[in-house]
Structures are given as C-alpha cells and as structure tokens.
Amino acid sequence: MQLPYTTYLIDLDGVVYRGETLVPGAKEFIAWLNTTHKKYLFLTNNSFASETQVLAKLTRLGISTDQTHILGAGQAAVKNIARRFPGATVYVIGEQPLIEMVQQHGLQVASLDAHKADVVLVGLDRTFDYKKLTGAVLAVRKGAAFITINRDPLLPVENSYLPGCGTMTAAIEAGSQSKPEMIGKPEPTLLFEAMQQLNSQPGETVMIGDNLGVDILAGHAAGTHTILVLSGNDTRESLARATVKPNHVYENLAAIMDLIHTAEPTSHTS
C-alpha cells in the first residue's frame, strides 16, 4: 500500500523521539517529507515549551526542519483566541513564552490583580499561586471564556512527575463551576488549526501518533486518517483491548519508510 496523503500531522514524543533518542526511521521519514514536498506539522500538547525550544531539540537530535513545521497546543490556542476574540483581554495562567505569544497576536494580557477578562487561558505555570487562582476563578465567574491548552494532570520529568496544566485547570474549574474548552489532543481543535494553517482537508490528512486515547482519538474527532506507531505509549496488547482503532499500525517510522521504499518502483505505473 502506498501512502495516499498530502498532509502529515505528527506527534513527537514516542513517534519521532523518546527522551533524547531518535526513534528508528525518524530522520529518514522527515527527509522524505521534505524531498517530496509533503505538507506536515509536528504537533505537541506541550503548554509551556515554545516552538523555538521544540525546534532546538529536533535540530540537536539531527532532524532537518524549521519552525514553520511545528505547532504546539499553546500556539494553536492563542491563534484560536485571536481569531474568535480579536483584541481581547486575556487572563493568562502560564509562563513567559505563552504571555509573549498572546501579546504577539494582538491580544491584551490582563493584570494578575484583575478579576475580569474576556478570556482565561490556562497553560502550565510553575509559579501558580492563590492570587492567580483567585483572578482566574473570578474572571470566569464574571463571564470570561475558559480555555485550557491541555488537561494533562501530570508533567513527566526525569524519574518523577510535577503537577501539569490539567491540575491548575481543575482548580479553576472547581472554583468557577465552569467546564473549560480544551485545545490540545484528544480534542480536535489542535488538528483543525493545523489543517487550516496548511490549507488541507481531513480527507487528505493523516495523524501519526503513539497514543490511542490521545493522538488516534484526536484524528477520529477531526475526521483525518490515522496511523498508530508502536514506538511509544501503546502496544499490540493495548491495541487489542482498545475500542479506539487506527486505520493502520506500524512498529515505527522505519516500518513506514520500508513501505514507501517498497512502493516507489511501481509508483509511476499505478
């Protein structure tokens, strides 16, 4: 089978790399996307690392790409807010890269003492405190749109975990008694923003991920094709038990490259 897609949305951790190690086939697959002029974006749910930081890691690991091929859920959230609430005042729970991103999109950042805003945007904030919680809760209770980048309760760090974006979101949700809108996977908004950026339609797009309940579920919700690679979170055993099923399953990106190389000799006669 050849790959009939024009557009590739690619998860990072568990697909392209694991920690500081490239997954087999990753460098070759990205080189193929570049040389065949495919449309692609790396998608990450990360709510605090900027696209510049993601690019620095990819470059360090030997992946040849650029920042135009990276879309984080934080950037997608800010783009979504700027389009829906142009010029809005945003109460930001987040770190400096997220604050700067909000400002760069023509939005106003509310003072932490303000208890009113058009939008409350929640990302990972390692200085989250009672003052910020109060401001966010009161702003939502007064009618602000409540948007969170993701609902991951924990942030994996070396040999441990830290409270994630979802933990802060849950605190604001409890105080405001309002349910947030989520931008990151498994909700489809990140994929919709990616396809809009690439001028692509779901029928020509494939989501490649390692997590059935996050990446593949997001692909289903957005109406794209889906490929599960077994180089990260899920295994053939968990796939057999799961109700969420991908369109195709491969061991890793190297297995996809094997398929591409096998199909190439006959690609001009089909």
Rank of each mutant, 00 (worst) to 15 (best):
D13F: 06
R236A: 15
D215K: 02
V206N: 03
H248K: 14
L41E: 01
Y161D: 14
G166R: 02
F29S: 15
M168W: 02
H105P: 10
K79Q: 12
T226S: 12
G166N: 08
Q197E: 11
I93D: 02
V122D: 03
V206M: 01
L43Y: 06
N150V: 00
P188N: 01
L191N: 11
V120P: 15
K179D: 13
H105A: 10
G62F: 03
G62N: 00
A171K: 03
H261L: 13
R84V: 07
H268L: 12
T235Q: 14
E28V: 06
Q177W: 08
P202F: 00
Q53W: 01
H248R: 15
V119L: 08
K79W: 11
T169R: 13
L55V: 12
F48E: 09
A144D: 00
I149T: 07
N80H: 13
S160M: 12
G209I: 02
L71C: 15
Q53A: 06
G135E: 04
A82T: 01
G223S: 14
A110G: 05
A76D: 02
H115V: 05
V206D: 07
R18T: 00
Y161I: 13
A73F: 10
P153V: 07
Q108V: 15
A56M: 08
V102R: 06
K116E: 12
L230I: 00
T35R: 09
A242C: 13
I172S: 10
L98A: 08
K245I: 09
W32K: 04
D125S: 10
T89C: 14
Y130M: 15
A56H: 09
